[in-house]
């Protein structure tokens, strides 16, 4: 029995990756939940917009790299994030101007907005592939590890190793900071409060002199920031492939609905639930249990509940189960 080794193993292969993945999902799901509560539609273009934002960051990264500008040991991409954010703010505001604003004016049904977001999704998808192609692009540079498996082993003297990749550490820290700032913004600033007021009661917000178009602009701006951060962190962690970003749509929506649509705190909790469940259920526990089991009783199978290919099934199953028992989600979100 070596519980310490088991703990290290589970931290290395499960907890750290899930924490990083959950943070990436949380930033994305926050955007979905914000758009839902302010603009009142399910934003299907979210995954592809994330991809385009990341593409802009990658462009900036390559430019800085070619100029020899860097912030080693940190990845150059961090330096390029502001570029991506500015590009995406402009892009999303342009999309709002050209597409969504008209439907707001004619008071179109929510599903018309969803269809329009499908249109934006196609366009964004095409643009991303136009710039980046469909293959994988890696843009991580700088120091790859905070500490490696070998360093950890030498330091602790344990048989089991653990590594912490810079991308993972940066992801977790950034997500934490961004969440704190977002909650400060929503709860402490006038603009943030006006957003919440608009989400709570549109008519009364109008009566109180809150300008809806301003609220909408602020919402897209925040969404752009969240999107670019989520996309870049995901890309640093796992590499950039447009299709993977599209596929993030399902876990992100699941996280937002799970937590309660319209509730930012819910989106974050939902994201970590989804991430831990996905990784926990598709994780091969054999190694961990071989440390825990008594001598001679080590497991012989992989001890993997489901193959990794079924991670969507896991997301989906959690969603079904939670909503069966609590249709409004964990944090009492809105029901459309």
């Amino acid at each position: 029995m070596e519980p310490l080794n088991a703990l290290v193993s589970v931290t290395n292969f499960m907890l750290i990756p899930a924490l990083a993945y959950g943070s990436q999902l949380a930033l994305g799901a926050l955007g979905i939940t914000l758009i839902f509560s302010i603009l009142r539609f399910a934003h299907f273009a979210h995954g592809d917009t994330m991809a385009l934002g990341t593409a802009a960051v990658i462009g900036g990264t390559f430019f800085f790299q070619s100029q020899g500008i860097g912030i080693s040991p940190l990845p150059t991409a961090l330096l390029a994030i502001p570029i991506g954010i500015v590009v995406m703010i402009l892009y999303l505001l342009a999309a709002d101007r050209m597409v969504y604003r008209y439907f707001r004016k004619v008071k179109a049904k929510p599903l018309t907005f969803v269809m329009a977001s499908l249109g934006v999704m196609f366009v964004t998808n095409g643009l991303t592939r136009l710039f980046m192609g469909v293959g994988e692009t890696r843009f991580e540079d700088g120091e790859r590890f905070i500490f490696t498996v070998r360093e950890f082993r030498e330091f602790t003297g344990l048989a089991e190793g653990m590594a912490l990749r810079s991308a993972q550490a940066i992801t977790i820290i950034t997500a934490l900071v961004v969440m704190v700032i977002l909650f400060w913004f929503l709860n402490r600033t006038r603009a943030g409060k006006s957003m919440r007021a608009y989400s709570d009661n549109e008519d009364l917000a109008l009566l109180s002199g809150i300008n809806p178009e301003r609220v909408v602009v602020i919402t897209w701006t925040i969404t752009a920031i969240l999107l670019v951060l989520a996309g870049t962190l995901y890309g640093l962690d796992k590499g950039f492939r447009p299709f993977n970003y599209f596929q993030l749509l399902l876990p992100m929506f699941a996280a937002a609905i799970l937590g309660g649509l319209g509730s930012p705190l819910g989106a974050i909790v939902g994201a970590y639930v989804v991430a831990f469940a996905e990784l926990g259920i598709t994780f091969a526990w054999r190694r961990v249990f071989s440390y825990l089991a008594p001598e001679g009783m080590e497991p012989t199978s992989m001890m993997q509940l489901l193959p990794v290919d079924y991670k969507f099934a896991v997301t989906f199953a959690i969603l079904v189960i939670v909503l069966l028992f609590r249709p409004t989600g964990i944090f009492r979100g809105k029901v459309i």
Partner: peptide, 12 residues
């Protein structure tokens, strides 16, 4: 990838 763009524009 022009086709994706075209589809989006047609839909919008």
């Amino acid at each position: 990838y022009m086709r994706l763009l075209t589809m989006g524009v047609a839909l919008l």
